[in-house]
Amino acid sequence: MKSFRRLIYPYMVWAGIFIVIPMLMIVIYAFTKEGNDTMTLQFTIENFVRFFEDQIFIQVLIRSLILAIITTIICILIGYPAAYFIARLKPNSQSIMVLLITLPMWINMLVRTYAWRGILLETGLPEEIKVYIGMVYNFLPFMILQIYTSLSKMDPSLLVAAQDLGCNSRQVFTKVILPLSVPGIISGITLVFLPAVSSFFIPKLLGGGSYVLIGNLIENYFVTTGDWNFGSAISLIMTVVILLSMYFTKKFDYDKENGK
């Protein structure tokens, strides 16, 4: 059996070249200035200084975070009741509902967002609302499915026990169902918040170009301006922000589980 061990070596080389090196290149670009040869690398933090000194960039970063946070909250508020109702249907109807929710997800995200553009074209809604509709539309299924999974795994006898012990239906929900579905909510947050921070085609398609997010900024610096060093610095900042927020979400979950 040990002879199969060797089968991993080619992939280790592959992953090193195609996954690790590209990431390192972003870091190198972020810390250097334009027009550098590989031989004469000169490290600088100028790109980061430029980002944090400019009000506009900070505003875009904050706007992206707020958009992602609000999108996530809306998805929880709309998605939780939906998941809860699905979990209480008959088993057959449950699987049909799950299939019905998954089906649109198989259709290209861009195609669906394009359709929303047509629907919202002449509604006269402000750009920001249009972007929110597009974001919630794209990410809501993930939230519903995650919460539904954690709800359907729940042991029904727990609910009966809670009722027997004198909980009314509201207490059963707040003391038993809700705490047990927190892991589902947390993984839902991961699946919604992460891509929402960095999304750039939803705001571009629905916001009509005037609604700039951090993802659009990165796209601009890579595709239009061609300032790859600054673009790399922005994406590094974004990655750090995302990692930090994920760390706090996970920590919150961990602390809660441990009763802190």
Binding site: A15, I19, P22, P195, V197, S198, F222, W228
Partner: peptide, 20 residues
Amino acid sequence: VNNLSMLNPEIVTAIGLMLF
């Protein structure tokens, strides 16, 4: 390393490959 590739925002993976 695989997790890094899957959890990274797509746009970061994309520009990494572009630079590469």
